[in-house]
Amino acid sequence: MNLFTQSIYSGLTSGAVYALLAMGLVIAFRTTRVVNLAHGESYAVGGLSIALLQQAGVPMLLALVAGIVLGMVFLWGMDRVLLRPRASWPVPSLILITLGLAFLTRGVLLVAAGVDPLSFPRLVAGPPLRWAGGILPRQALVLIGVSIVAAIAVAVFLGRTRFGRQLRATAEHPDAAQLMGVNVNATRAVAFLLAGGLGALAAALLVPLVPVDFQTGLGMTLRGFIAAALAGMVPGAAVFCGFILGLFEAFVTSYGGALASDPVVFVVLIVAALWRSRSIRFEGRARA
């Protein structure tokens, strides 16, 4: 096996997931200015519920749909019940709320699904593909493809539709947007439904290859955030940065060892955060 090729394949596979997560994180961030630390839980909720439903004998397709819907409802519900009624709270308090929800979700998932990692059968059967000395499961190819298609679809949605423009208006100035006739609440709802759907979709495609357990969520949130931060919280760039992060992580693991991966990736995060934040002061309140 060729390590270089394999690193590319593995990197693209995890990168596709980070891209989907980062995109959802950014969309929700743009409507609320809150970094949602429970974002990755949509991945865990989606993945674990699909696995549990499948184990309970629910047909695969139904389980998949149910899992994705659960992921969507999860984040939408968080916004509707926890964040939206507290829109006047300071941003740090809202971030703490999302962190609290992440903890609670982890506890619920532990009780519901147990400690062991769960998985479910692949959607695409057949032997893995062997190209250029690397091995790529067919499922992973589908994952990468879906992630790119989803990225393009979301980009078109944001750029060419009324909702997209409303979302950007809301992100710029919620009060002004409301005055201009944008239904801010509906915009938020769609943003969180979309974010949860993308997270659960990532799980639906990756979990057959990489099992999920109750504590996968936080790691996914952090990975998604790194990609989003690198991208400066711009949805299109987030997809690109998700793939870059996946590849970077894979190559660090391949050539630096598994032990190097966390420190290196997070040093990159810190540098990226510094680089990106030079222009942001006073939490965007500079216009006062």
């Binding site: 190097a260 990736v265 955060a273």
Partner: peptide
Amino acid sequence: VQLPGTYFAVGTLGFSFVIEGLARA
């Protein structure tokens, strides 16, 4: 300290990861 709230949060979180990772490595 130059980082605004959100980035400060994730930056310190990252620092925690780095120290943990170094201790393991």
